[in-house]
Design a protein around this nucleic acid. Structure first.
Length: 589
DNA sequence: ACATCATGGCGCC
DNA sequence: TGGCGCCCCTGATG
């Protein structure tokens, strides 16, 4: 609104500038506003200074009867909250927090917001319980500068080695022990082409990569029409997998041939609008009971009976045609209309099922009594639950990832389940553009405490904003190792630890990355190229350029990153770890 | 080099 | 209860 002006008097013009007293409302600690709060006014910053006219009405209140005042503010304006007096946003690779915003990590309110709301009380609160901090000074934050030291590159005892050394080669879980996979080095890769909302035009591709033979990857694009949300190797025949997709179908795919059969289709009548289009998210197998379990975006669980075939060369678990395509026996296991994103069958107790979803609950079920409302336990969360897993060996623990930036651990499903044994603050915010983060147990850790999860918030790593993959000891919340690479500037929400080998596969929007501590580029140059696999859009671009995708040479090693304008770097396995517990990293007991 | 859009959970009114 | 605006970290498209 243009300020009202009187003809009788010239408006008085007041120019506001930043002064030393600009932070007069703040408490004494300024460490959250970056290292250079003042005294470094570059041209760039000056350019950001904005001239703005204040609301005339507010002025009128204070200056009633006098000539109107037009205030031209040359104060710096925060890019985040649009208020003056402070700045926020990225400065290089470091993000300066806006004190009006809650801590990005633990979600407690920001300093200025608190001062505004509570006045003096906020200052007292801040000094007593560290309320009112921002992300940079969050007591839960693990910063490289604070005791986390990069390991020497050639160290034979890198933290990742440590991570893998603590794992004793376990006995292979009973589920797969009868058929030792010959190609167990394969990792499956979900390619997310497009959001599923715009239903049927897009495709969900399934890729199979042998990380020992990168060039022999296969990508099947004709199986699903929407993104694939979950996949499992067939527990009795690793040559086939099951996949659940937002197109509402479950497929059983033969990895050799790419041939697939559809086990169930929840949208037999095609696209009738988003209110009726059913998408499949959570999925797991229960080989003991010979069923495939899937869950949809409306809160329902579907159980597909399978029967064993006696040939090992064919798909071993086949759908029992008598129950196929019947959707009438869907069971509502979460709030009606809410997405059920995770299902996990207990590895030891086949009658136990764990589910989680958008109704903020993880729920434990008895497979023998699956009806709406009959869950054994409901584990409440503050926000949407991205994943929930039983521990891999004993099946006694539960690990969940929720969108309130907390990992939760229940130490025993036979103990007190009233509240989690621990809550670990960890940055894995949901972001609409990302696959939700899921913390997963290390299947090789006999103590069932190590978990791997990607980190959302970036760290300034030698001038680059990188998003490490964290190894967390869930028994005490300690960060055991963080894995990053200057070439991987993307977020890695999808991580999988190999069931037996020292291998971590990480997926991001541009790449699939294999981390393996035993691969040393200096020792074996040839092997270096195996360590990074580019896929998706950059691969297309590369193909266009070279016209020959079998010609994977040096050029391809950094193909996915050329667009960033970086010069080629040798691929390094950057691993850092805390020597002691990072200061202030807290676990809520 | 830039703008816009699509997407989804959530808090606020 | 519904609508609307907000998101640090996207990728495709224009």
């Amino acid at each position: 609104m243009a300020p009202q002006r009187r003809r009788t008097a010239f408006p008085k013009v007041v120019i506001e500038r930043d002064t030393e007293s600009e932070q007069s409302t703040s408490s004494s600690d300024e460490d959250d506003s970056g290292e250079d709060n003042k005294g470094s006014d570059s041209e760039e910053e000056m350019a950001e200074e904005k001239v703005e006219e204040e609301d005339a009405n507010e002025r009128k209140k204070n200056q009633k009867g006098k000539a109107p005042i037009i205030t031209i503010s040359l104060k710096k304006v925060c890019k985040v909250c649009k208020k003056s007096g402070h700045e926020a946003g990225f400065k290089g690779a470091t993000y300066i927090d806006c004190p009006m915003k809650p801590c990005f990590l633990c979600k407690l309110p920001g300093r200025l917001a608190l001062v505004k709301r509570l006045g003096l009380l906020a200052l007292i609160l801040n000094s007593v319980i560290k309320y009112g901090h921002t992300t940079m000074s969050c007591p839960h934050r693990v910063a490289i500068e604070h005791g986390v030291v990069p390991a020497p590159r050639r160290s034979t005892h890198s933290p990742l080695d440590y991570v893998f050394q603590r794992q004793i080669m376990p006995k292979i879980p009973p589920v797969v022990s009868n058929v030792l996979p010959s190609n167990c080095g394969l990792f499956l890769y979900l390619e997310q082409i497009k959001p599923s909302y715009v239903i049927p035009n897009q495709k969900g591709q399934v890729g199979i990569w042998d990380f020992e033979k990168v060039h022999e990857k296969m990508v099947y694009g004709n199986i699903h029409t929407c993104i694939v949300n979950n996949m499992r190797f067939n527990p009795v025949n690793d040559g086939t997998i099951y996949a659940a997709s937002s197109d509402g179908t479950i497929s059983c795919i033969d990895l050799e041939t790419g041939l697939s059969s559809s086990l169930m289709n929840l949208n037999p009548n095609g696209w009738q609008g988003s209110n009726s289009w059913r998408m499949l998210y959570g999925m797991d197998m229960n080989s003991e009971k010979r069923v495939v379990l899937v869950a949809d975006n409306f809160g329902f669980l579907y159980i597909i009976n399978c029967k064993a075939e006696d040939t090992e060369t064919a798909i071993l678990l086949r759908v029992d045609t008598r129950s196929n395509h019947k959707t009438g026996d869907a069971i509502m296991i979460h709030k009606k209309g809410s997405k059920v994103v995770g299902l996990h069958c207990n590895p030891v107790h086949p009658e136990l099922l764990l589910s989680c979803g958008n109704d903020h609950f993880a729920r434990i079920w008895d497979m023998r009594r699956l009806e709406a409302g009959s869950s054994l336990y409901n584990l409440p969360h503050k926000r949407v639950v991205n994943s929930a897993y039983f521990s891999p060996t004993t099946g006694c623990k539960i690990l969940t990832t929720a969108q309130d930036n907390r990992l939760r651990v229940w130490d025993s499903i036979f103990g007190d389940l009233e509240s989690p044994s621990r809550e670990i603050v960890h940055s894995h915010d949901f972001n609409r553009h990302l696959t939700p983060f899921r913390a997963e147990w290390d299947p090789k850790d006999p103590t069932e405490s190590l978990a791997v999860v990607g980190r959302y918030i970036s760290e300034n790593f030698n001038g680059a904003a990188l998003h490490p993959i964290d190894f967390i000891d869930t028994s005490n919340g300690q960060l055991v190792a963080e894995v990053m690479d200057p070439n991987i500037t993307t977020i890695s929400p999808v991580n999988k630890l190999h069931p037996r080998d020292d291998v971590l596969a990480s997926g991001s929007s541009r790449s699939l990355f294999i981390w393996r501590p035993s691969w040393s580029p200096e020792v074996d140059e040839q092997k270096e190229e195996r360590r990074i696999l580019i896929c998706g859009n950059d691969e297309k671009r590369r193909k266009k350029k070279s016209g020959n995708d079998s010609d994977v040479e040096d050029d391809d090693l950094d193909g996915g990153f050329k667009s960033k304008g970086k010069k080629k770097q040798s691929l390094k396995l950057k691993v850092t770890a805390s020597k002691s517990a990072p200061p202030g990293r807290k676990v809520k007991h």
